[in-house]
């Protein structure tokens, strides 16, 4: 999957998983930080995003540092998914 397509798909999935009813995909800057700044997400949201990666993409992110890097932004999530699904393939 192309990264741009994946980024748009992730935005929709994040809005649904985190109940961000007031946002549309266009409101989310893929380069902006997900936590504190940007969307202002918190630790409960982090759990939901980890679950999203597991459920939607079959990826278990168990290493804390890897998890922190993967959840930096929507772009970082897309990069993590692409690199790990390519490696598996």
């Amino acid at each position: 999957m192309e990264k741009t397509t994946l980024v748009e798909q992730l935005k929709t999935q994040i809005i649904e998983a985190l109940l961000l009813e007031d946002l549309t995909p266009a409101d989310i800057d893929p380069a902006a930080p997900l936590f504190v700044e940007g969307l202002g997400l918190d630790s409960i949201d982090a759990l939901e995003l980890i679950l999203l990666l597991e459920k939607q993409y079959g990826l278990r992110v168990e290493d804390p540092k890897e998890r922190r890097d993967a959840l930096q932004s929507v772009n970082a999530m897309a990069d993590y998914i692409l690199s790990h699904t390519k490696n598996e393939g």
Binding site: I44, L47, L51
Partner: peptide, 9 residues
């Protein structure tokens, strides 16, 4: 497996 935390809370 993989139960969302929000409904639990």
């Amino acid at each position: 497996q993989g139960v969302s935390s929000i409904p639990f809370i």
